[in-house]
Write a protein that binds this DNA or RNA. Structure first.
Length: 491
RNA sequence: GCCAAGGUGGCAGAGUCCGGCCUAACGCGUCCGCCUGCAGAGCGGAUCUUCGCCGGUUCAAAUCCGGCCCUUGGCUCCA
């Protein structure tokens, strides 16, 4: 079965074929380390993570690069608040980012390039653009000449002639639509002021902590867009397969990346463009600048990584999901259903020996159908929502089997467990199957309490039995009675 | 104003590329039954005739075509 993806460049769903048969090269526009990472960033990461996992599971070797923008007016604006200079502010936020990524169970990218470590690559690319006539120097700054690049606007369907004038650079630019590749001198205090939090110190003090580098055009700083072109080329080559970014980056950022790279190399830049949707909060985009965000850290603490992942994967990557108490509660229910189904399958499998003869055709067929529809869904533009539905069907099949039979189908359950672990665990990155088999003292103690409780129940002392159940619940141990005796799980 | 994406049953959210198996997946909610000392979990069934609005194409449309209305994102920093 072939993978199809929706390519922003063409607006169509296309067959995905990497340039190299065995390897997929993928670049994700990371983030600017100037504000706490929030749920919106986390969603894009998780979707990209699952894309990589799926590509690997169908046999590709994936080379995954995610960048960090550690040079920015927005970072300079935090000097004094979150660090003493630009480098320190960036480093402080970076540490938090890595923490959040680990907590979400993201697989590490192959490289996390940073702008400050690629200034040479950036300067080289700007020089090449000037030499080829795609860029011009003006007062120590260098601008990309939009009119010189024929394909400008092809990603976003924008017409450069329609662009609104940018008064700030009107004097230096030949055309208002031209954008900076290199900016002369340090940072502009006015620009920094626009990013400062209310009540923060005046920007003048912060501006001194901004980084600058030497270049053929004098001291200065790189423009915003050139970094991604330089870093992706350095780590993935002049042409690579997939570029992922938030949909808010389509224009101008991604559009400018294409212009710079294709002008500089004369080759196609990214072959497929995938854009993730914007998390909505009360009808508008969750955003650092709107200050309406929940940080990734807060969300992980409140909901846990599995519920968050379930929430993210319960919508297709291109959708704009609503972040609210109700939608997260729903994700919580889904995750619980999957987790219980998995635990039940493991427990039932372990309760019978491998030579058991019972065969439940319904269960086996159901597991096969789940694998098939999960695969079809993921191959259809990474439709995680439908794949999630398949996983829930798997839980349902296990429940029906365990409820409907006095003896269990060992091999059938084993297949179900494998599917949970392979699809839910390995592909979706949910915590299924990696919990080890250690029996803790806590488990022994719970079993001891349950024995006592059973004795009370047999004696008809239901008040005492219910009290024990309530008190265990208060400790996070959920007790369930059934014909075969009580069972429990830690919440 | 311009560009893009989207509007689906009480909520949420797939399906729209390749029209029929969609009297619309999965989940939540509500109701009934089973199970149970009770609860929870689970199982079985029901509810939801409807897919922004208007018109068209077709034997057949949530899915195709045209027009209109609305929402979100972008055109300024942004996953």
């Amino acid at each position: 079965m072939t993978l199809h993806v929706t390519n922003t460049l063409t607006g169509e769903r296309e067959v995905f074929e990497p340039a190299d048969d065995d390897q997929v090269t993928l670049y994700l526009c990371g983030l600017t380390t100037s504000d706490p990472v929030h749920v919106g960033h986390a969603r894009t990461w998780v979707h990209t993570d699952v894309m990589c996992r799926w590509l690997e599971s169908v046999g590709y070797d994936v080379r995954y690069v995610q960048n960090f923008t550690d040079v920015s007016e927005k970072i300079v604006a935090r000097i004094g608040e979150d660090g003493d200079d630009e480098r320190e502010v960036a480093r402080n936020y970076m540490a938090e980012v890595i923490d959040a990524m680990d907590a979400l169970g993201l697989r590490r990218a192959d490289v996390y390039p940073r702008v400050s470590e690629h200034i040479d690559d950036i300067v080289r690319m700007v020089e090449a653009l000037v030499e080829k006539g795609y860029a011009y120097e003006s007062n120590g700054s260098v601008y990309f000449d939009v009119s010189s690049f024929e394909g400008y606007g092809k990603l976003s369907n924008q017409d450069p002639g329609e662009m609104e004038a940018d008064a700030d650079y009107a004097g230096e630019k030949r055309d208002p639509a031209d954008f900076a590749l290199w900016k002369a001198g340090g940072v502009d205090p006015e620009e920094v002021a626009g990013h400062r939090h209310e009540g923060a110190a005046p920007p003048e003090e912060a501006v001194e902590g901004a980084l600058t580098w030497d270049s053929p055009w004098g001291e200065g700083r790189p423009g915003w867009h050139i970094e991604c072109s330089a870093m992706s080329t350095t780590h993935l080559g002049e042409t690579f397969d997939i570029h992922v970014a938030g949909s808010d980056l389509v224009f101008p950022h991604n559009e400018n990346e294409i212009a710079q790279s294709e002008a500089a190399t004369g080759k196609e830049f990214s072959r497929y463009w995938l854009h993730t949707g914007m998390v909505q909060v009360e009808g508008e985009k969750m955003s650092s600048s709107l200050r309406n965000f929940t940080t990734a850290r807060e969300a992980i603490e409140e909901f846990g990584p599995d519920v968050l992942r379930t929430f993210f994967l319960s919508t297709v990557y291109s959708a704009d999901p609503t972040f609210s108490a109700a939608t997260l509660a729903e994700a919580g229910d889904r995750w619980e259903t999957i987790e219980r189904g998995y635990e039940r399958a493991v427990a039932a499998r372990d309760s019978v020996d491998a030579y058991a003869k019972l065969v439940d055709g319904d269960l086996r067929e159901a597991v096969d159908a789940v694998r098939e529809s999960f695969e079809a869904a993921m191959n259809d533009d990474f439709n995680t929502r439908e794949a999630m539905a398949a996983l829930l069907d798997l839980a349902s099949a296990v429940n029906a089997h365990v409820d409907g039979h006095a003896e269990y189908d060992y091999a059938g359950l084993k297949r179900a467990v494998d599917a949970f672990e392979g699809l839910g665990g390995d592909v979706f990155g949910l915590s299924l199957g990696d919990s080890g088999g250690e029996v803790s003292v806590a488990e022994d103690l719970v079993e001891l309490v349950l024995e006592v409780r059973e004795a009370e129940r047999e004696a008809g002392n239901y008040d005492r039995a219910d009290d024990l159940r309530d008190r265990l619940a208060a400790l996070g141990v959920e007790v369930q009675d059934s014909e075969d005796g009580p069972s429990y799980r830690f919440e």
